[in-house]
Amino acid sequence: MSTLSKAVVTVLGIDCKGIIARVSNVLWQHEVNILDISQTIVDGYFNMIMVVDVTAPDCSFEGLTDSLNALGEELKLQIRIQRSEIFESMHQI
């Protein structure tokens, strides 16, 4: 099992229509498969965490980051993608 292929997308900000659709669309364009989604809205604040598979050969992490950042600016949300090892190494022995 290669753990190098997973990444975590986090989206934080004020809720509006179509956030999941727009983010999923960007991921789809970069051939990224979604493995898990959790999403909540607290006091109008949208909070989503996606675990995604970034192993696809055409997936450039840099390109994906740039696309998600651009979408974040457009929707006025904080969207970021990080390789999953940072979370695993901090919280798992």
Binding site: D36, S38, S84, F87, E88, H91
Partner: peptide
């Protein structure tokens, strides 16, 4: 599997 609380803790 990484849980939501841990992810948010790292981001914080």
């Amino acid at each position: 599997m990484i849980n939501t609380g841990e992810i948010l803790q790292t981001l914080r």
